[in-house]
Design a protein around this nucleic acid. Structure first.
Lengths: 365, 365
DNA sequence: TTGAAAGCGCTACCAC
DNA sequence: GTGGTAGCGCTTTCAA
């Protein structure tokens, strides 16, 4: 028994065959197909109809050869946290390497940290030169005018790793932050069955993603794990010292703390504080992202889970979208939210190798 | 403060410039670069050296235009389970659509179910015609000779969704089955803190993936969750009736059953059996994959988690690898194991929309 | 062993 | 408004 589903049996035609069929020149056919000036309405209609009839497919290779335009893509990402953003860069590079059609020039620019010096970097880089831009936008409103102008020129901007809904952009790729928070609350509620106090340590609630995670966490906790009571959120502003002190404070104030959700990558000082005070292993901890220092904590079960934001996949997706738009001018879905990966000690090895050893081919994370 | 990391400042040369630099014809340069017959050793060396010096990059568009060879890719997947394999097909189609360089003809063929009628389908489809093949290989040894011959012609075969290490193949893409099993055991052990009995229902232990999941489950249970005792594995052979009966049997024999891991997509009859006997909600259940009927069980928490095998990502990856190989003849990593997604009620929505509503652009699952 | 040249399908320019 | 044609970078054939 076998079933065939051949679906491209039909001959695909080129510009020449349309011309021959209509007994006109290929120049005219080209003008008609591309809605260029200098074609009568009637011939244009005839051409378009014939194109459909003969199943016209433009030959991308020929077009690229003729136009021979290399695309210039500017990538603007923070230096910190390097392990995270380097992985985004790797995803972009990997996607670029697979690109067989158009030639793409990648230009990487960095700025110190998220929301710090980005517009400066863009200005200095001469953003006018780029056909498209990939960027992690901070909350700085300075970016608005630049991107508005960029859009005015029909040049695409794609946001990665963090979104800024108020800024004009072609598309944004992030993990689903609301879901991240929700997963954390869901898991904690499953593992802890009796009433307990839960704390959260975040970065800065003015950053869209950080706020979303917390909203997701609170909402999920209320509906799925109502036996857990949420303490007020603590903002550590990505500062290790602040995080450490906040954690020490926390366990002093709430010695009966049951669980803790650290919603940014700034979890190491928190774990240290717990360890030094004998709370590591007693408090159920869920962290965010993955880096070498976190690995042993997951391995020995002191950190129950970490929510991995898939930097490689984000970079790869962003680049693919950008190129696709540049090639076809068809707008992609504006908002893409990747599912974060839940890293446990049982699947840790799947993610950890990739942090060091990049095979560049896969979207496995 | 801004940091620039321009990395492609160097001019890339074409065949012409090499010819001009060496004062020879472009024909000779081409022959030398491609190690074709009819070039003296000395000139070949000179050409290769100059190519490196001038940073030669072949123009893919021009090459494709000239050669104008459309690639023909054969895809052989089971009909059952349609929701799963259709999603693999979508991933393949999506990747094909992004392919801007070479023209690719996709030809889809189906056979009733995994391991049933595949070699027949391949024979009937005239496998000789394909430049490459993507297939879900059953355990039938009949495939061996075909693929050996295929390899002999330097034609690539890529396995998706299930591997068969004994068969010759260019690459295989599956989820990490060992990790899947491990995750299930890990999660169950975290949620159930006191000693309990755990059962597993699988398909057929002769299928590599099914056995691997079980091995992973057992290993993880022993090391991470030693308070859980594993009952002998039950094989349901993907038959709904068998699965139903086995589940009824199971709860009769072990009324104190604590947890259950269904390691194939055949979970519905099991859930039915549990429900009818008042065990749903009492036994902690982890299932595999995702389909509409399973959704309400996850939503209301009766199924704790389901391990999603990312069919879309598998299809997309397989196609990308195949094309990359066909274009460059560089062998990809032979074994790729994607991280399965852990689907909970808190992140269910991220996966569920994609089951029905395909945006074809993303590797979000 | 090498050179010369045709031509892949398309775009863009010039002539009518 | 339309036709004709050069040429993008490469492969390949034919001639030398």
């Amino acid at each position: 028994m076998h079933y065939a589903m051949n679906q491209k049996p039909s001959h695909v035609a080129g510009i020449k065959e349309i011309a021959r069929a209509l007994d006109i020149s290929i120049g005219t056919v080209d003008r008609a197909l591309h809605a260029r000036a200098g074609v009568s309405h009637s011939t244009r209609d005839r051409v378009l109809k014939m194109a459909k009839k003969l199943n016209y497919r433009p030959n991308v290779a020929a077009r690229n050869l003729k136009l021979n335009h290399r695309l210039k893509v500017g990538v603007f990402l923070p230096e910190q946290i390097a392990l995270f953003y380097d992985r985004v860069r790797e995803g972009i590079r990997a996607a670029c390497a697979t690109e067989s059609g158009i030639g793409v020039d990648l230009v990487f620019h960095s700025f110190p940290r998220l929301g710090e010096g980005e517009s400066n970097a863009i200005e200095k880089a001469g953003w006018q030169q780029f056909d498209g831009i990939i960027i992690a936008p901070g909350n700085s409103a300075e970016l608005g005018p630049i991107f508005s102008k960029f859009e005015g020129q029909h040049k695409p901007v794609i946001f990665v790793t963090t979104d800024a809904a108020r800024l004009p952009r072609l598309a944004s790729i992030t993990t689903d932050e609301t879901a991240s928070g929700g997963i954390a609350a869901d898991l904690l509620g499953r593992v802890i069955s009796s009433p307990a106090k839960v704390a959260t340590i975040t970065g800065d609630l003015r950053i869209q993603g950080h706020a979303e995670k917390l909203r997701g966490f609170a909402a999920s906790l209320a509906t799925l794990s109502p036996h857990l009571s949420l303490l007020p959120a603590i903002e550590a502003h990505e500062s290790p010292a602040d995080a450490y002190n906040a954690a020490v404070d926390l366990i002093k104030k709430h010695p009966d703390l049951g669980a803790l959700y650290v919603s940014t990558a700034n979890s190491l000082p928190v774990l240290l504080a717990l360890e030094e005070n004998g709370y590591l292993g007693k408090v159920l901890v869920i962290t965010t992202d993955l880096f070498p220092e976190l690995v042993p904590f997951i391995e020995n079960g002191k950190v129950f889970a970490s929510l991995y934001q898939r930097p490689f996949a984000q970079g790869k997706t962003a680049f693919e979208m950008l190129i696709r738009f540049l090639a076809t001018r068809v707008a992609p879905k504006q908002i893409t939210r990747l599912a974060p990966h839940i890293v446990l000690r049982s699947n840790l090895s799947l993610f950890i190798n990739l942090v060091y050893n990049d095979d560049s081919s896969s979207l496995s994370i």
